[in-house]
């Protein structure tokens, strides 16, 4: 995930908290949040992942005027453009791990930059999905003062075939 400018906004935090089923007022109610230890609205712990919204090259968002690999009335046959992270179809990529280290918690008004560097890659054989190719990436989120606020490490996996569900 790379973003030159990821403005952290209260309305985005509200929508994100709703989507993960979290009704804690510290994510939505400025007055109530003032009375908490946080001292005001903060973002939930996994919010930084929504920097995808501000990554101009993020491959899992339909872009105006460009082909999209999802279906219309029927499948389009369009292959997902390679290079993007975080998933794909037809025995493609899935999210295997995600790690966050919080130097401080995000709050509305922060304007972050996100820079990602690739990490290790490794392979593993799996009974449920064939050959697995793992690749790691490390994203540093810095605030408007250049201070490191969150370090995120993600691991994606490309599978040889769709994963068999364990019941």
């Amino acid at each position: 995930m790379a973003a030159k400018s990821f403005p952290v906004e209260a309305s985005h935090i509200l929508m994100f908290a709703r989507s993960v089923g979290d009704d804690n007022p510290v994510y939505s109610d400025a007055e109530a949040a003032k009375k908490t230890e946080a001292g005001g609205i903060i973002a939930p712990p996994t919010f930084a992942q929504s920097s995808a919204q501000f990554d101009p090259d993020y491959g899992l968002r339909p872009k105006i005027g460009q082909p999209w690999f999802g279906s219309g009335k029927e499948p389009t046959g369009i292959k997902r453009e390679p290079g993007g992270r975080g998933g794909g179809g037809g025995g493609g990529g899935l999210h295997a791990e995600q790690h966050f280290e919080y130097h401080r918690h995000l709050k509305p008004g922060d304007v972050l930059t996100a820079t990602t560097v690739p990490g290790k890659t490794w392979e593993k054989e799996s009974a449920r999905a064939g050959k697995l190719v793992f690749s790691e990436s490390v994203t540093e989120y810095r605030d408007q003062n250049g201070d490191l606020v969150i370090t995120a490490r993600g691991v994606g996996v490309r599978t040889e075939r769709p994963v068999d569900a364990k019941s």
């Binding site: 993960v20 979290d22 804690n24 510290v26 230890e37 939930p44 712990p45 295997a96 791990e97 966050f100």
Partner: peptide, 27 residues
């Protein structure tokens, strides 16, 4: 990340607001 986010609510309800220093999972 939806499951990680929902699991995050369990954590922050337990440890309190702005208290987490690390959180990581395997899917």
């Amino acid at each position: 990340m939806l499951t990680m986010g929902m699991t995050g609510k369990m954590l922050t309800d337990y440890v309190g607001d702005a208290r987490l220093t690390k959180y990581g999972v395997r899917f």
